[in-house]
Design a protein around this nucleic acid. Structure first.
Length: 274
DNA sequence: TACAATGTTTTAAG
DNA sequence: CCTTAAAACATTGT
C-alpha cells in the first residue's frame, strides 16, 4: 500500500499527537516488524516521553521523542497508521499502540513486511539521499546517481530507494506512462531530462493530493487505506491500472500487464514505446 | 485451489 | 565489479 504520498499522510495521522506524552505503550512483541529491536522494552523507552516532531523520507518515517529517542517506522507492503479514541481494544494485527494524552496512535500491519526501529543519540535522516521533490534534486545530482547504470532497466532504477526515495510500484508505472516509454527499456535509451521532469511531477503531484486528502478528510474519517484510491485525478494511470480491463486515460487502449524488474507492471502499448 | 498483492533483503547466477 | 532472477518473509482476497 504505502508509497511516498501514503507514507506522508500516515505521518500526519500520528503527528496529531505532537506535543503530547506517551502514557502507555502496548505491543504485540512477537510481531515480525520488531525483528530488529527488543519490542518488550518499547514501554520503558517511550513511556513519559513527549512526541516532539516527525518527518518522512521516502517510505521511512521518523518520530522524535524527548530525551533523544527516535522511533522509525516503515510500512512495508500492508502497514497502516492512524489515530483513534483512547483505550479501545487491540484489533487483529495491531502491533504497536502509543497511548497518548488525547488519543491512541496505532500501527497495524497484517503482512509484517514493515519494521519498527528505536535509536538513541542518532539522527538517522541525516545521511539519506536527496528526495525527488526537493530543490536539491537537480538534473546534475540525478544524472550523477544514474551514471554508470546504462544497462539497468528503467523501472528498476525508479524503484531504487537510493535514487528515487518513496517511489514504489504504482508511481514507477505512472512515471513511465507519462514519459511515453516502456518500463523495461534500458537506462541508456532513456531521455534523462524527461525522466527527471516526470519523476518530479508525479512525486510532487502525489504529495499535493495528500494535502488535499488531509483537508477533505477532516472529520470525515479519511484513512490511509482509501485516500489514494480517490484522490489522484482520473487522468492518472493510477486510477485505471488495478482493474482488469482498465484503459489508458490518454488513448483508451486496454492496458497491458507484464512483470518488469520483478514487479507486476501496467502500461499502455500504444502510448509507451520500447 | 492457486496466485497475486502499492516492499525489501538475501542468495545464487550470469 | 555489475546486473538479474528467484526466493523468502506473512496474510488476505479473488
Amino acid at each position: 500500500m504505502p508509497e511516498l504520498a501514503e507514507v506522508e499522510l500516515s505521518r500526519r495521522f500520528w503527528e496529531v499527537a505532537r506535543g503530547e506524552s506517551v502514557e502507555e505503550v502496548r505491543v504485540h512483541a512477537g510481531a515480525r516488524i520488531f525483528r530488529e529491536i527488543e519490542a518488550n522494552r518499547l514501554g520503558e523507552w517511550l513511556e513519559g516521553r513527549v512526541l516532539e516532531g516527525s518527518r518522512a523520507h521516502g517510505k521511512r518515517m521518523f518520530f522524535e521523542f524527548s530525551g533523544e529517542g527516535v522511533l522509525e517506522v516503515h510500512l512495508g507492503m500492508s502497514g497502516r497508521m492512524f489515530s483513534r479514541p483512547q483505550g479501545l481494544a487491540l484489533e487483529k494485527h495491531d502491533h504497536l499502540v502509543l497511548g497518548m494524552q488525547s488519543c491512541d496512535l496505532v500501527l497495524n500491519d497484517y503482512r509484517m513486511f514493515g519494521k519498527v526501529v528505536w535509536t538513541v543519540g542518532e539522527k538517522p535522516w541525516e545521511a539519506l539521499p536527496t528526495q525527488v521533490q526537493e530543490s536539491g534534486f537537480t538534473q546534475g545530482y540525478f544524472e550523477g546517481l544514474v551514471a554508470g547504470r546504462k544497462r539497468a532497466v528503467l523501472k528498476a532504477i525508479l524503484l531504487d530507494q537510493a535514487v528515487c526515495p518513496g517511489v514504489g510500484n504504482w508511481m514507477a508505472d505512472e512515471v513511465c506512462w507519462r514519459m511515453g516509454v516502456y518500463p523495461g527499456v534500458r537506462m541508456g535509451e532513456v531521455d534523462l531530462l524527461k525522466m527527471r521532469k516526470e519523476l518530479r511531477f508525479v512525486c510532487k503531484g502525489a504529495l499535493r493530493h495528500v494535502a488535499d486528502a488531509n483537508e477533505q478528510g477532516k472529520g470525515k474519517g479519511f484513512s490511509p487505506g482509501n485516500y489514494v484510491e480517490r484522490v489522484p485525478p482520473k487522468r492518472w494511470l493510477f486510477q485505471h491500472r488495478w482493474k482488469k480491463g482498465g484503459r489508458c486515460p490518454r488513448c483508451a487502449a486496454e492496458l497491458s500487464r507484464e512483470t518488469v524488474a520483478g514487479r507486476t507492471t501496467a502500461w499502455c502499448e500504444s502510448c509507451q514505446k520500447a
